[in-house]
Amino acid sequence: MSRIDETKDFIATRIAVLTVSDSRSLDQDRSGQVLVDRIADAGHVLADRKILPDERVEIADQLRAWVANPEIDVVISTGGTGLTGRDVTVEAHRDVYEKEIDAFGTVFTIVSMQKIGTSAVQSRATGGVAGGTYLFALPGSPGACKDAWDEILVKQLDYRHRPCNFVEIFPRLDEHQRRK
């Protein structure tokens, strides 16, 4: 199964956090704060943090801006992944993705099933890659953010994690754009 290879050095990633909400402010953003705290505890760097309303174009524009920023390796959003009319985060993410990480949503669902049973079907958590940057959309609850970080992201964003991890393939994410 998975393990940490202690012979390898930890490599900190630079992570931006986006909370999607029509009603929260920074001081009320419990889900975003869960992510910020876990990012720091794991030894990564918080590169930026914002709150935006549930507006597809605004969300996609912010994701594109972070993808274009060479100081950001990973973007994690929280909120707007449900089924209501205002939940447009997944669509905004897919507007930006070059490749979707299909298994991320599947693994998140498996993790969620263990915590909240069949209510997990109401989440549309997703992950993808664009411009050499990883992007993940998580539900807007603190519990979902804890589950996604503790069970998936903390491992996949650790270079020492074996048998494989997201960090070790950073240099190859944009190889299709390089001149041959």
Score class of each variant (00 low, 15 high):
residue 2 S to L: 09
residue 6 E to H: 06
residue 6 E to P: 04
residue 11 I to L: 05
residue 12 A to Y: 00
residue 12 A to H: 01
residue 14 R to N: 13
residue 16 A to T: 03
residue 17 V to W: 05
residue 22 D to G: 04
residue 22 D to W: 09
residue 22 D to Y: 10
residue 24 R to F: 02
residue 25 S to M: 02
residue 25 S to N: 10
residue 27 D to V: 07
residue 31 S to E: 02
residue 32 G to M: 04
residue 33 Q to K: 14
residue 34 V to E: 07
residue 36 V to W: 01
residue 38 R to L: 10
residue 39 I to S: 09
residue 40 A to H: 07
residue 42 A to S: 13
residue 42 A to E: 06
residue 45 V to F: 07
residue 45 V to P: 01
residue 46 L to F: 01
residue 48 D to G: 03
residue 49 R to D: 01
residue 50 K to W: 13
residue 50 K to Q: 14
residue 51 I to L: 15
residue 51 I to M: 03
residue 52 L to I: 12
residue 52 L to F: 13
residue 53 P to S: 14
residue 56 R to H: 10
residue 58 E to P: 00
residue 59 I to G: 10
residue 63 L to V: 02
residue 66 W to P: 09
residue 67 V to A: 03
residue 67 V to I: 02
residue 70 P to D: 13
residue 71 E to D: 15
residue 72 I to N: 05
residue 72 I to R: 02
residue 76 I to D: 05
residue 79 G to Q: 02
residue 79 G to D: 02
residue 81 T to F: 09
residue 81 T to N: 14
residue 82 G to D: 11
residue 84 T to G: 15
residue 85 G to Q: 13
residue 87 D to L: 01
residue 87 D to T: 10
residue 89 T to E: 00
residue 90 V to D: 13
residue 91 E to L: 12
residue 95 D to C: 11
residue 98 E to F: 08
residue 99 K to D: 05
residue 99 K to A: 09
residue 101 I to A: 14
residue 101 I to W: 02
residue 102 D to Y: 01
residue 103 A to H: 04
residue 104 F to Q: 07
residue 104 F to P: 06
residue 105 G to S: 01
residue 109 T to M: 11
residue 112 S to M: 15
residue 113 M to H: 15
residue 114 Q to V: 01
residue 115 K to G: 09
residue 116 I to W: 14
residue 117 G to A: 13
residue 120 A to Y: 07
residue 120 A to V: 04
residue 123 S to V: 08
residue 124 R to A: 14
residue 126 T to Q: 06
residue 126 T to C: 02
residue 127 G to F: 07
residue 127 G to P: 10
residue 128 G to I: 12
residue 128 G to A: 13
residue 129 V to W: 00
residue 130 A to Q: 06
residue 132 G to A: 03
residue 136 F to H: 05
residue 137 A to S: 15
residue 138 L to D: 11
residue 139 P to N: 10
residue 140 G to P: 04
residue 141 S to T: 14
residue 141 S to Y: 10
residue 143 G to M: 06
residue 143 G to P: 01
residue 144 A to V: 09
residue 144 A to W: 10
residue 146 K to Q: 12
residue 147 D to C: 05
residue 147 D to Y: 08
residue 149 W to H: 08
residue 149 W to E: 08
residue 150 D to V: 04
residue 150 D to C: 05
residue 151 E to Y: 13
residue 152 I to Q: 08
residue 152 I to G: 04
residue 152 I to C: 03
residue 155 K to I: 00
residue 157 L to G: 11
residue 158 D to S: 11
residue 160 R to L: 00
residue 161 H to N: 11
residue 162 R to P: 04
residue 162 R to G: 09
residue 163 P to H: 08
residue 164 C to S: 12
residue 164 C to M: 05
residue 164 C to Q: 10
residue 164 C to T: 11
residue 165 N to L: 06
residue 165 N to F: 07
residue 167 V to S: 10
residue 168 E to S: 14
residue 169 I to P: 04
residue 169 I to K: 09
residue 170 F to Y: 09
residue 170 F to L: 07
residue 172 R to L: 08
residue 173 L to A: 02
residue 174 D to Q: 14
residue 175 E to H: 13
residue 175 E to Q: 15
residue 177 Q to F: 00
residue 178 R to T: 14
residue 178 R to E: 15
